[in-house]
Write a protein that binds this DNA or RNA. Structure first.
Lengths: 190, 190
DNA sequence: GTCTATACGATGATAGAC
DNA sequence: GTCTATCATCGTATAGAC
């Protein structure tokens, strides 16, 4: 962590600050309702300055999703490295859910609450499409659509818990605990 | 169903058509990305004409949510009429999930995909707040936040299944089947 | 009930000075 | 890197004719 004392900001630092503010605002108000001015003014700069660090507004959103996509890549590698034992699906689900930490919840909230936009821009960081690969690796190719959906739901309990927690004063830990419990229960049905 | 032959439309009929088109577009592109012109032009009318039928764009979205809120009201009445037996929570969850029919999925998709906007306008048709009452009625007041979240997730499997189904070619029936199965599994944990 | 015309504000984005 | 100035565009909404 670089101290900002002195008023100077390095380029990378500013970029990180923009992402941080954008994350909070996108989570609070949604992507579309957050203007570039909202973001810049919180940082004490003008809209225009944002465009030095990011090509456009979408690039900020994508910047937020990069980490998550990388995490998923690592997860896929892990799966590939596992022997194809019968219990792999269960273990994979629990492992994935456990990668969700309190600090990552806000990114997931943004992803969940702005589906239409993310679907539109998609691109290389499309967590959804990446997840198709996960399902393909873990589920019998003969399995029904319903079965595949069900498996996906088991992976996706954190998003579901986040939705359920909206409005309630539930803490990040509550959300994660509920999600893990749900995954544990769903996984029993495999 | 009134035939439109002759080119005349009754007021109520037009209103219904607007809602129908808006529902589809909101589900496809999201609320914010759908302009009033998008809606009106599909109906062969101008933006301005919409404002005769609806106060503004938000009113269209709220019009879409009314049915769902009414459904929830009825559900709450049903709960109140039940004897407080131990298995009530389980029965309530399954009953609620079963009220979701293929035709209602699109409204739920819109509700799920536009959380930020719905949170902002809220108002009297706030399904989320109404659901707080359901939880209060069914869950031990002493229960932890985590427990309450978990219960809520059991109720909310249809939304979760819809998210999971995005992109996949899953049919409405697949979505509902997966959701019901998930609720069934989650409910076992109570 | 629907149309034309229009006002208005806000937004995403760019050019160019410093 | 950040600013000022400026744009084009878009979306909501209103007024008034038919």
């Amino acid at each position: 962590m670089t101290t900002t004392t002195g008023g100077r900001r390095s380029g990378a630092e500013t970029r990180a600050q923009i992402l941080q503010v954008a994350l909070r605002l996108f989570a609070e108000k949604g992507y579309e309702a957050t203007s570039t001015r909202d973001i810049s003014s919180e940082l004490g700069m003008t809209k225009s300055s944002l465009y030095y660090h990011f090509r456009n507004k979408e690039a900020i959103l994508l910047g937020l999703m990069e980490d998550r996509a990388r995490e998923l890549d690592i997860f896929i590698e892990w799966i590939n490295a596992q022997p194809a034992t019968p219990g792999l699906l269960q273990r994979a689900v629990m492992r994935w859910v456990e990668t969700s930490t309190p600090g990552r919840l806000e990114v997931m909230r943004v992803a969940g609450a702005n589906q239409p936009m993310l679907r539109r821009i998609d691109g290389r960081y499309n967590v959804r499409q990446l997840f198709d690969r996960v399902i393909d690796l873990l589920v019998d190719p003969e399995a029904s659509q319903e079965e595949r959906l069900f498996v996906r739901m088991a992976f996706d309990t954190v998003s579901a818990a986040l939705v359920a927690a909206q409005g309630t004063g539930a803490s990040a830990d509550d959300v994660l605990a509920a999600a893990r419990r749900a995954s544990r229960e769903l996984v029993k049905a495999f």
